[in-house]
């Protein structure tokens, strides 16, 4: 297993008011993304535990692309990864960001 942590400045605070959201499942080629609204509104953190070793540069590229496109301010993303491809990772991050941007019930 390899753990990676990325801290980024977020340009836009996340919308909505849900405290947490979770998408995906830990399985081969899949991952779960837990999103929590726990940081300052200009911060975004992405913490990854992955079964695929040596892909730090690819993760950094996916994370930078995601943070530049999405409203992620205040969000901590925690990822358990079963060796998902970058497109699957990008999809799950986007799903997580969209889900937590809803209003709390």
């Amino acid at each position: 297993m390899e753990t990676l942590t990325f801290a980024r400045k977020a340009t836009t605070p996340a919308g909505g008011s849900k405290p947490m959201a979770i998408v995906g499942v830990v399985a081969s080629g899949n991952l779960e993304v837990l999103v929590e609204r726990v940081l300052g509104t200009d911060e975004c953190r992405i913490e990854i535990a992955t079964a695929a070793l040596g892909f730090g540069d690819v993760w950094a590229a996916v994370v930078d692309d995601f943070v530049s496109r999405s409203a992620t301010g205040g969000l901590r993303f925690s990822i358990n990864d079963g060796g998902a491809r970058p497109d699957t990772v990008a999809l799950r991050l986007a799903q997580g960001a969209r889900l937590i941007a809803e209003d709390a019930v």
Binding site: M1, M20, I22, E32, L34, E36, A49, N80, G82
Partner: peptide, 19 residues
């Protein structure tokens, strides 16, 4: 999942956990 009560055994096998 936010409580992160995960398996205490999977680290031994270098396997990913789920929250």
């Amino acid at each position: 999942p936010t409580e992160r009560v995960v398996s205490p055994h999977l680290d031994l096998f270098d396997l990913p956990k789920q929250f």
